[in-house]
Amino acid sequence: MIRVVLMLGVLVFGSTGGEIAITYGMKATGEPEELRPRALLRFLGRAFRNVWFWAGVPLMALSFYSLLVLLSWEPISLVIPASALSYVVGTFGAKYVLGEDVTLARWAGVVLVCLGVALVAAG
């Protein structure tokens, strides 16, 4: 039981930590000037030179492997609903790490999405 909870912690914090690092990196990268191939290539070039982008990638890989390990221990109908907690943890991260303004409506939406994903994945 403890190992499942610990691995779930690695999964949730790996995925949200990775995504938050990538978001931080992408905000520093800035928007592409236009949505055309040449501008998008320049945009990717800038993103790949950002250290926060590369901090996020191994964290997301870690969360992917912890998902595989969890799936080898427990049924998918338990693992995916539990990992829907990422939506709530990620929103806390967005508010306190990225400084985003999470209004009451957005919180309500996130909680509904989290419950909805849990129900859909549970079948």
């Binding site: 995504e19 939506y87 929103t91 991260g93 967005a94 990225l98 985003e100 957005r106 939406g109 999405v113």
Partner: peptide, 8 residues
């Protein structure tokens, strides 16, 4: 865009 907008 915000992470807390895109993710959900």
């Amino acid at each position: 865009a915000d992470y807390s907008y895109v993710m959900p």
